[in-house]
Amino acid sequence: MNQVLAIAAGGAVGSVLRFWMSTWTYALMGRSFPYGTFAVNILGCLAMGFLFVLFTDRLSGSVVLRAGILIGVLGGFTTFSTFSIEAFNLIEQGESLKSLLYMLASLILCVAGTWLGVIIGRQL
């Protein structure tokens, strides 16, 4: 039960962080492209790779804490469902090329972010 509560609390924190970062990114870059979701997903993947290595290879910390952060915070922070609807909306708006660019760049950069996070975590 503690794990479930940690995930729920972490999810709330992650969702608020996503909102703040997306809002800040859209204010900075505009709304002509889903920059907010794009930035959140890349940063979230980087953090997931790094923290996964930290929790599994470096620290022998609490399973509850690990679940609260990796599943809760980062699960609430990253936005695959939002990514999907934004890609769909771009297609519906006749922006198929922009949608394809968004999908491909998100896939490549999020996997690269995870990889970079793992590398950073393993260097500690």
Rank of each mutant, 00 (worst) to 15 (best):
L74T: 07
S81H: 08
K98D: 07
R58L: 12
C110N: 04
M21C: 10
G76I: 15
A87K: 01
F80S: 13
F19P: 00
R18K: 06
L59R: 08
T23P: 00
T25P: 03
G72C: 11
G121F: 09
S60L: 13
V53T: 13
T114K: 02
R122Q: 13
S15R: 05
Q93T: 14
M48L: 15
A87M: 05
S32D: 09
N89L: 14
C110V: 14
N41F: 10
W24L: 11
T23Y: 01
A27V: 04
G72A: 15
L124Q: 07
L90S: 04
R18I: 12
L90Y: 00
T114S: 07
V73L: 08
S96M: 11
G61S: 13
F55D: 03
T78A: 06
S81A: 12
S32L: 04
S106Q: 07
A8R: 01
L107E: 02
G76D: 06
A112Y: 05
N2S: 14
N2A: 13
A47G: 04
F77L: 10
A9F: 04
E86P: 09
F55W: 00
V63H: 01
R58I: 14
S60P: 05
A87C: 06
A39H: 03
T79K: 02
I42E: 04
A87G: 08
F33C: 11
S32R: 06
L46F: 09
L17Y: 00
Q123L: 15
T37D: 01
S22Y: 00
T82G: 12
G44Q: 06
A6F: 06
F50Y: 06
L28G: 01
V63G: 02
F52K: 03
A87I: 12
T78V: 14
V16S: 04
T56L: 09
V16I: 15
G49L: 11
A39G: 04
N2C: 11
I71A: 13
Y26D: 08
G75K: 07
G68I: 15
R66W: 08
E92D: 11
I91G: 02
I91R: 03
I7L: 08
V73G: 03
N2I: 15
A9W: 00
I7K: 04
G11I: 11
M103G: 09
F80Y: 09
W115V: 14
A12R: 02
V73E: 01
D57Q: 13
F52E: 02
W115A: 15
F77A: 12
I120A: 14
L46W: 02
L107F: 09
T114L: 14
L116F: 11
V13T: 07
M21D: 00
F38H: 04
F38G: 06
S84G: 13
L100E: 02
I108K: 05
V63Q: 01
F83T: 13
G30W: 05
L104Y: 04
I7M: 09
L17V: 10
A27H: 01
M103F: 12
T56H: 04
S81F: 06
V13D: 01
T79C: 10
L74Y: 03
S60W: 02
W24N: 01
T37F: 02
F52M: 11
R122F: 09
S99I: 13
I42C: 12
A27Q: 01
L109M: 12
L46M: 10
L109D: 03
L74F: 02
